[in-house]
Amino acid sequence: MRPIWILAKNTFKEVIRDRILYALLLFAVMLIGLSLALGQLSFAEQERISANFGLSAIHLVAIALAIFIGSNLVYKEIEKKTILTILVRPISRLQFILGKALGLSMLIAAMTAALAAILMLVFYGLNMKIDERFAIVLAGLFAEALILLGFTLVFSMFTKPLLVVCFSVGIFLIGHWQGSLQFFAKKAEGGVLPAVAWVVNHALPDLDRVNWKDLVLYNQPIDMPGKLMALGYALAWFVFCVCISAMLFKRKDVG
């Protein structure tokens, strides 16, 4: 466990000392700030618009970190050959993958928390109610980022970062269109659509299962068992993807 933690801390430190992160953070803060201004344009919906914009900004940053940083997580180590000195230490390749994944997960959690704190200040300024719904929505955003990080890791085992980003964005889009796809598949009478929808439904994650922004936006009631099930679903996808990555990485030539 100790080597995983050491690698995770190093990965966290590596990204936290990268200027790109701060550009992303600045972008998110500007979006949150913009949410205030846009909210003021609306007479009746200011709170909802501000909340929607703010949560979307956090969502975007979490996903961008998972996909863009995740696509380089292992590739950069191989490309820069830093991995050569790591893998001769008493650690396994599985521990290496787990350490890298944990480090980036910790970073996404920290960034989500930091941006959430800023958004809470906005909510406080607007006299909006902040309750457990807010934390549940953030947990959902984090869970979605974890799923995408898992897929990004798998893709990065056999292709270059640019393609990894394309594939992962594809997973993000399909993951959010699952509901619509299943809806149209049900309406379709024959053809290939139902078969395609069945395959997509079983082979790829449904990211809308952890998208709970409506809880805050429309003050919906909390279905806690359902939420916990969905978090378990996300965690299962993440663990599955990390295992696949570790299996692929185990036989990969890295020299």
Binding site: I6, L7, K81, T85, P90
Partner: peptide
């Protein structure tokens, strides 16, 4: 092991770098 044309973690200081490898060992 010291590889050819070594690239190391540029975000670490000299002390942090050696601590990292010693801790891994």
């Amino acid at each position: 092991f010291l590889p050819e044309r070594p690239y190391f973690y540029e975000h670490l200081s000299g002390v942090e770098f050696l601590e990292f490898y010693a801790n891994l060992s």
